[in-house]
Write a protein that binds this DNA or RNA. Structure first.
Ligand SMILES: [Mn+2]
Ligand SMILES: [Mn+2]
Ligand SMILES: [Zn+2]
Ligand SMILES: [Zn+2]
Lengths: 135, 135
DNA sequence: TTTTCACTTTAGAATAATTATAAACTAACT
DNA sequence: AGTTAGTTTATAATTATTCTAAAGTGAAAA
């Protein structure tokens, strides 16, 4: 994904392409593979990469704005921090609690044969599978 | 589960049956159905039930001690609070994010037909399925 | 282009959940 | 009963996140 696409992505979501948003978006989206991160880890990586310092509140704001626009998804894993995911398609995860590492599983690589029906008055929104790992 | 069993349960885990632990254990384990809770919700329910006040730190201590002893499990759901579960067997959950409500799904009620193999050097510890609900 | 202004960034304060501390208490062993 | 390691408690500290309000800026209007 090139810079022009980053700008399109921001504009299409009515997010002004500010210096900070462009920098964060380039860091998050100009890569081949899925990227899983916490706000804190993203902050550290951004500091390491570009010696400019973006306020932590801005990183929170931006990540939430990207999530609201559908450019990021949130993944719930055991622990105290919130994880985000550049893969916004329907998919599943391996989770290694020792390293706090998430690994994508393509939706097609898990087939569920039997599933209970939703409780009365409720519908199934989606099904998330976590495969917890050990050594 | 009667009081004598509560005392056995505590003693078998080398947890001294203090007044606070017995009160919390009775509240959690003397019931037929699974109980899902957060420390905060448990605290409120305990205050309502018995007008005695157990310090919040004690509730944290006790819940963690029960978890360490295998009497409670922890369930990770989207959100900022940690949920605990009196059902410590292998099972799955419905999750209603609007009401923050968890509902048990028996392990046998979900059958997975196809599953990817674990990444190199790692093994599968367990598989958790979350069925997210909507209205 | 300048002007304008809603949107954005930022430092710092505030909040919320959880954990740590250390003094007082107590279950259980001798 | 006396001892002591384990426990409770009030309170402080920590951590993650959100709020606030002032200063800055992108982009539309003039
Ligand atoms: Mn979490
Ligand atoms: Mn959580
Ligand atoms: Zn992912
Ligand atoms: Zn459960």
């Amino acid at each position: 994904m090139k810079k022009i696409d980053i700008l399109k992505k921001l504009r299409s979501s009515r997010l002004r392409p500010t210096k900070q948003r462009v920098e964060i978006a380039k860091f998050l989206f100009e890569r081949e593979k899925t990227f899983h991160f916490t706000v804190e880890s993203l902050n550290k990586l951004l500091i390491k990469k570009s010696n400019s310092k973006i306020a932590l509140a801005t990183i929170y704001n931006t990540v939430h704005a990207f999530k609201a626009s559908g450019h990021l998804s949130e993944v719930e894993v055991r622990g105290n921090k919130t994880y985000f995911d550049t893969n916004v398609s329907n998919h599943h995860h391996f989770y290694d609690s020792e390293t706090s590492e998430l690994i994508d599983i393509d939706a097609n690589d898990i087939v569920i044969q039997k599933i209970p029906k939703a409780p009365n008055g409720k519908k199934i929104k989606n099904v998330e599978v976590f495969i917890n790992l050990k050594k």
